[in-house]
Design a protein around this nucleic acid. Sequence first.
DNA 1: ATATCGATTATCT
DNA 2: GATAATCGATATG
Length: 222
Amino acid sequence: MPALSSNRPISPLPRTFYARDPRRVARELLGKVLVRKDSHGPRTARIVEVEAYLGQNDPAAHTFSGQTLRNAVLFGPPGYAYVYFIYGNHYCLNVSCEPDGKAGGVLFRALEPLTGIEQMARSRALTIKNPRDLRLLTSGPGRLAEAFDITRERDNGTDLTSSDSTLWIGSDGLPPGPILLTPRIGITKAAHLNLRYLLRGNAFVSGGRASQVRRPLPRTKL
DNA sequence: ATATCGATTATCT
DNA sequence: GATAATCGATATG
């Protein structure tokens, strides 16, 4: 059964949550809730798919070749939004991990809409024909960014640990359910590493069925 | 259902 | 000048 919307209060995750290896952060972010607060009212969605990027040792990471203006947030303190623009078309959301000075991050790849679905649909209606199809709202990194009106200009550097922010991450206490580990999607470098984390059987995971037929999370792994 | 392709621009070599 | 952590449209089986 899919995770359902709960009316439990959502409390922000502390900065210490993010001050760890991105693999651990990625795994534990599954089931948590992304919140957008603005004049349209709250949008919330459950995190169902993420990928870990390992900083200086990871050829696929934006931080592989060192710090630049664009990736500075990933080298800074943990718990802040890193938003980048890709293919001349899409924004993607990450959260910085590891202690200040060490690079690392987690990419948000798919969400399950909970509340504020009408506003997500309005934001996505600019691009898609059928904003009534919930899967099309937030199933993919570019899609979820558009559904939440996430842009580099507005959100890069936002503190995601504060419920005073217009964008933040919290927990409503629901357990995430079974987690699967697969290769990352859409990259050319270090494409074989199992650094994509998803909730097993969740309908909002991106990439179709083939990308979900992989292995359970090993107990010994981060 | 799967494959291929074009869009469109910030960033880095 | 080439590339990119993508998406949506179109073509084909």
